[in-house]
């Protein structure tokens, strides 16, 4: 009897536990839905006035109160993509170096520094971007790209230093710590026997990392990249300082551009007319949607890569 009683008790504890978890999940859901709902509500005047044209028109004119978000969506997505690709490549290499190649006396301070980098406020990145990176892009990097890859339209045209590519690079620098730190943690959780198995078959350390350890950690690394992508999409201050803030779609990555988050930050405090405010709130809604869509696309992409890797012969 006593035994039975004890088990009933633990069952109740279990149920309470489940209820708490469920409650937490519902609260999260409610917050997100509430957020979306209030954004939709705030966007209503703009939605009514511009309809779907808001998505594919390119004028952003507070004076005439005609608003279209296409260049802003474009700038947001492209700058984040550039950042994600750069940060993915560099972050993974840095993580591989830190987890398996760097001697301990180097790995520890380096990891510490990288984590410190994640704590640097974005305005500092922005200032550095404006005063150091932008001139370097204009004087050195952009001309070099133009010389070597200038036949690609994305590397053509005049460079102002500030622009889409510069914003992508700054964002990459900002999210590399996230990618690196998480990827390194994931890599170190891959058991030593995987490494030993590969090495014992005559693989070099490099082959072991690239063909066994990194693939084994890919889900975690991918999670890190998704997390970083989220930060890049929503980053405001640093982006606005180096992207040029021009709501225009240009083929060239050197050209100035603009992002959803930057426009909101730049114009929200001074917007007084209803339609203007509403258009800005709709940008917020779009940012939410763009984040969800980009995330979903990235997941689908990765999922297909996973499957591909599994069935590869």
């Amino acid at each position: 009897m006593r035994r039975l009683g004890a088990r009933t008790g633990s069952k109740i504890v279990d149920q309470i536990f489940v209820a708490v978890l469920l409650g937490a999940a519902i609260v999260f859901l409610a917050i997100i839905l509430g957020l979306a709902a209030s954004l939709v509500k705030g966007s209503l005047p703009s939605l009514r006035t511009f309809g779907f044209a808001f998505l594919w028109t390119s004028s952003w004119n507070p004076v005439t109160s005609i608003f279209g978000a296409l260049p802003l969506i474009y700038g947001t997505v492209i700058s984040s993509l550039i950042a994600t690709v750069l940060a993915g490549v560099f972050g993974i290499f840095a993580a591989v170096f830190l987890s398996d190649f760097a001697p301990a006396f180097l790995a520890r301070p380096l990891s510490f520094m990288i984590e410190l980098l994640a704590a640097v406020p974005s305005v500092v990145f922005g200032l550095w971007g404006l005063f150091v990176l932008a001139p370097a892009m204009r004087n050195t990097i952009d001309p070099a790209l133009q010389r070597t890859l200038g036949f690609l339209p994305i590397f053509s045209g005049p460079s102002y230093g500030v622009g889409l590519l510069t914003a992508g690079v700054i964002l990459a620098l900002m999210i590399i710590p996230t990618v690196t730190a998480i990827s390194r943690d994931v890599l170190t959780t891959i058991p030593a026997d995987q490494r030993e198995a590969s090495m014992s078959l005559g693989a070099t350390k490099w082959e072991t990392m690239m063909k066994v350890v990194v693939p084994a950690a890919r889900a975690g690394i991918f999670g890190a990249i998704i997390l970083a992508l989220g930060r890049a999409l929503g980053e405001t201050i640093a982006t606005t300082m180096v992207i040029g803030n021009r709501p225009e779609i240009a083929v060239s990555l050197f050209a100035p551009s603009y992002t959803l988050a930057s426009v909101i930050a730049n114009e929200f405090t001074e917007a007084t007319s209803d339609i203007y405010l509403s258009a800005l709130i709709e940008l917020g809604l779009l940012l939410l949607i763009v984040s969800v869509v980009v995330n979903a696309l990235a997941r689908i992409l990765m999922w297909s890569v996973f499957r591909g890797a599994r069935s590869a012969r």
């Binding site: 004028s59 952003w60 004119n61 507070p62 004076v63 005439t64 922005g126 404006l130 005049p158 102002y160 500030v162 622009g163 201050i237 606005t240 300082m241 040029g244 803030n245 021009r246 709501p247 225009e248 050209a255 100035p256 603009y258 730049n266």
Partner: peptide
């Protein structure tokens, strides 16, 4: 405003 000059850039 909507700045008309092409290639104009905005600083914060």
């Amino acid at each position: 405003v909507s700045w008309p000059a092409s290639g104009s850039v905005g600083g914060k």
